[in-house]
Amino acid sequence: MELSVEELSGGLRCVKLAGRLDLKGTQEVDLKFTALVAGTKQSVIVDMAGVDYIASIGIRMFISNVKALASVGAKMIILKPQKMVDDVLRMAGLDAIIPIHTELAAATEAIKGK
């Protein structure tokens, strides 16, 4: 499981994930992801284009982080999930609490907008 950070213009941060968010993969990135997301208390875009599998453990990692962000009025946006990953995110009802976008421009707008 890989995690990298891209600093976008306007002080916006994009965390890119790649690999499998199964039990093993989620355990590999959980601490680092949580430090970068919940830990910084700033709105963030999570680029999931490189993630080809997610199970409930990965979804729970997102939920606990978005809860921490919401408590300080910050947002998380999910960007470009692959088709089957997108299906599972929606099955879990995650799209109701974390907006999912396919384009960076729309994701950036969603972060800036109220």
């Binding site: 199970a55 409930s56 729970r60 939920i63 809860k67 919401a70 599972v88 099955m91 879990a92 109701a96």
Partner: peptide, 19 residues
């Protein structure tokens, strides 16, 4: 799990069997 609840009120368990 009650999917209509906001994130902060969702229980932690039950997601796996829901999927």
């Amino acid at each position: 799990p009650d999917m209509s609840k906001p994130a902060s009120q969702r229980p932690v368990g039950g997601l796996g069997i829901h999927l």
